[in-house]
Amino acid sequence: MGSFLEIFDIYLLEAVLNGILLGGVLALLALGLNLIFGVIDVTWICYAELVMIGMYGMYYLVQYYGLSYYVAAPIAILLVAALGALLHFLVIAPLLSSPPINQLLATGGVLFVLQSFATVAFGIDFRNLGIRLPILTLGDMHLSYSRLLAFGAALIGMVVVYLFMTRTFTGTAIRAIAQDRQIMALMGVDAKKIYVVTSALGGALAGLAACLLVLQYDVHPFVGLSFGPITFLICVLGGLGNFVGGFVAAFLFAEIISLGGLFSDLEWGYVLAFAFFILMMFIRPAGLLARRS
C-alpha cells in the first residue's frame, strides 16, 4: 500500500479526494434543481441565488442573533424552503401554461431581483460565519473538516430525499406527476399542491446546500454566479430531471475542476469542465445515462 501511494503523487490523491468532497455538495445542488425540473418542467435559473439568500440567513442567524450553527441550520433551511414555495406561487404558477422559454426568463428576472436585493440589503462586503473548522491531516494530505461535513450531510440529505420519494404517498405522487401530468389529476392528486410541495422541497435542498457552503466560502451577493452555472451544466450533463445522471455528472465535474486546478489555475479547471460539457452534449445530447434512441 505504501509503495502504491508513492507511485501516485500525494497532491494528485489529495485533489482527487477534494474533488469527491466537492462533488457531494454539487450533487446536492443538482438534486434540488433536477427535482424542480423533473416535476414542474421549469428551470430555476435563480436556484443558486436561493442558496445565496440561505447563506445570508445563516450568517445573520449565527453572527447577529448569536444562535449556534446547529440551531440556525434548520431555520435557514425552512426559510429557503418557504422562499422556494413563494417563488413558485408568485412567478411560476402564473406562467405554467406559457412557453418554457418565458418561464426560464422569468426566473432569470428573479435572479436579478435576489442578487440586487442582497446588494441593497446586505451590502457588497464579503462575510463569513467566523467558524473555522480544523483541518484533518491524513498522512501528508490535508482535508478540511468543513468539506467532510458538507459531503456527509449532502449524502444524508440525498438519502432522505430518496426515502421520501419512494416511501411516502406525497413522494410517490411527485414521481408519478413527473411521468404523466395529465393523468394524475384523474387519479385524485392535486397537481397544484404537489407543485408547491416540490418547490418547497427544492428550496429546502438549496437551504441545506447553503448551510454547508457557508462553512467553506464567504458570502456576498454574487456568490451564486460562482456555482450556479456549474449546477445547471451538471443537471444538463446528467440529463435534466434524471436524478442518477445528475449524481454521476456532479462527481465527474468536481473531479475535472479539482484535477484541472491542480495542474494549472482554478479557472482552467472550470474551462476544462465547460469544454467537457459542450463535448459531451454532442456525444450524448440527452444526458450521460440516457439510452440512445
Binding site: F112, Q115, S116, F117
Partner: peptide
C-alpha cells in the same frame, strides 16, 4: 448600487 438591477429584475 443594486437598485437598478432590482428594478430591472422586477
Amino acid at each position: 448600487v443594486g437598485w437598478d438591477n432590482l428594478v430591472y429584475g422586477v
